[in-house]
Design a binder for these strands. Structure first.
Length: 504
DNA sequence: CGGGGTAGCTATACAGCTACCCCGGTGCCGTATT
């Protein structure tokens, strides 16, 4: 079989050999096993379901978190004309979606990309059931633990969907997962421990730096200097949209590089444009919230700065992991200011409903139906929170198969179950935050070891430089970057304006 | 909790200060609306 796979790889994709981990994953899938693949992004993750898609009889379903990821991949596949692929999502017109469904029924596709939300729709499930799903792939599977438990609960309904589709083998793929997240994914999809294919977490070519600053002012001047002096293209992560806007404006006053902000509050067209400009090298610096990341398939990003601390070491690892995929030296610096923990604490607090809100919600359930939008608004429960409450209420047995509420539901028991589930999640989030804080406040332990150990990796080798505490020369990463020329009119104009009107 | 914006005061400076208020991340989907 190994030989067959190699031939398929050569003839269909034009590669002579597999990259680390790929063959391992694919051969197990072809044996009908469910697999969890922990492969570095850019390491050819998508090939591990694209190749089986060609060899397996029915259709391969790919659950993907972002519309942009789905359209990108489908376009690429169509351009290569190797694999007939399609996607279903809300960016399409009704007509397009109908056409895709028709094509599916006629067996015109081998690969279908969908969001977890779309997969919940009965129409979609029925069509898939009829044509037969041979492989159920979940791309960026860390989203299950990262988002599933709070604002995208449909992620947690994936195992149920797989069951309804006749239990095809599942391939869950991600780049970063702690032992705990691995366990959760394995349990959800009944993946055997021996079918976890993991590559080392350690990124030997990235130097890890932590820069302690007393206050916001000191941090800002240090960061602005660093942004200007580091060589190559880079990303600066902030934890709020406001911080992004402010940092971009202050950089533009004196900074020399081509820079742009990026966050979820921007128009989707602008976001696409900015990402494309960064990819093509027309921008040197992106200042972003955690919205910027997935789907960035750029090998030569030279540095990532964390202007503020992220909410977990998972997020941190994912974000610095975008540096140096080409294997050349890269640099990651985290600015540590004590107060940064507050914003994350606030978000965790805000995210979950109060005990009283849960009780009132359950009282409404007891009256025989899921609360209406008006009732939810009266309780000051956001639509996202309502979704979360409905999910946990269902899990506690408050919902019947037809979608209505169970008669004479025990409101107290349901409320208790929901509150417990929410408390558990909240505690987990706070523990992750604590681990992140500990890492940021570290004053002598090797950062590489701390980070790798968090993910259960004991391999700590490094290529050029290790970390702040093992000794690090920042000068090694400075140098000229493409930058913008001084004569460039629009930029000079903008700079002059910024000087005059710093608040614009 | 803390950063940033703004109103308002002082009192003559094309500001500086304080007190106060507001807001804070990640994305599907579908329906109503511009």
């Amino acid at each position: 079989m190994r030989e067959q796979l190699r031939i398929a790889l050569q003839t269909c994709f034009g590669y002579r050999s597999f990259r680390p981990g790929q063959e391992e994953v694919i051969s197990r899938i072809m044996c009908g096993e469910s697999v969890l693949g922990l492969l570095a992004t850019g390491g050819g993750k998508s090939l591990t379901f694209q190749l089986p898609a060609l060899l397996l009889p029915g259709i391969t379903l790919v659950v993907s978190p972002l519309i942009s990821l789905m359209t990108d991949q489908v376009q690429q596949l169509r351009a290569q004309k190797k694999i007939p692929a399609a996607t279903l999502n809300s960016a399409q017109s009704r007509e397009e979606a109908r056409e895709t469904l028709r094509g599916l029924e006629q067996g015109r596709f081998k690969l279908l990309y969908v969001s977890p939300e779309r997969l919940q729709q009965p129409v979609v499930q029925n069509v898939l059931k009829r044509i037969g799903v041979s492989l159920f792939a979940v791309d960026e599977a860390h989203c299950i633990s990262q988002w599933g438990h709070d604002f995208r609960t449909d992620y947690l309904r994936l195992p149920e969907a797989a069951k309804r589709l006749g239990n095809p083998p599942v391939l869950a793929l991600t780049a970063t997962a702690t032992a705990e997240v691995r366990e959760e994914i394995c349990q959800l999809f009944a993946i055997k421990p021996e079918n976890v294919v993991a590559l080392p977490v350690n990124r030997a070519n990235i130097a890890l730096d932590v820069i302690h600053a007393e206050d916001e002012g000191e941090r800002r001047s240090l960061a602005l200097k660093l942004m200007d002096s580091l060589a190559g293209q880079g990303i600066v992560y902030c934890s709020t949209r406001q911080a992004v806007e402010v940092l971009v404006s202050s950089y533009q006053i004196e900074g020399k590089k081509r820079i742009h902000g990026y966050h979820g509050g921007m128009e989707s067209m602008e976001r696409m444009l900015v990402q494309a400009q960064f990819a093509s090298g027309e921008l040197d610096l992106i200042v972003a919230t955690n919205a910027f990341g997935m789907g960035i398939d750029k090998a030569d990003i030279r540095f990532v700065l964390h202007y503020q601390m992220p909410a977990s070491l998972e997020a941190y690892a994912q974000e610095i992991g975008r540096v140096g995929r080409d294997g050349k030296p890269g640099y990651a610096a985290l600015f540590a200011v004590r107060e940064d923990v507050q914003i994350h604490q606030h978000m965790v607090e805000k995210e979950y409903p109060t005990q009283e809100q849960v009780e009132q919600y359950c009282r409404l359930l007891a009256s025989g139906a899921f609360p209406s939008p008006e009732q939810l608004a009266a309780l000051e429960i956001s639509p996202e929170t309502a979704e979360l409450l409905a999910f946990y209420a269902e899990k506690a047995g408050a919902r019947q198969a037809d979608g209505t509420v169970v008669r004479n539901v025990d409101e107290r028991r349901i409320a208790r179950a929901i509150i417990q589930a929410l408390e558990r999640r909240k505690l987990k989030k706070l523990q992750k935050l604590t681990a992140m804080v500990r890492f940021a406040q570290e004053r002598n332990q090797c950062l590489r070891k701390s980070l790798n150990r968090y993910f259960g990796d004991e391999q700590h080798s490094f290529a050029t430089q290790c970390c702040t505490y093992c000794g690090l020369s920042r000068d090694a990463y400075t140098g000229p970057s493409p930058g913008r020329s001084e004569e460039e009119m629009p930029w000079d104009f903008r700079r002059a304006l910024a000087r005059l009107l710093p608040n614009l």
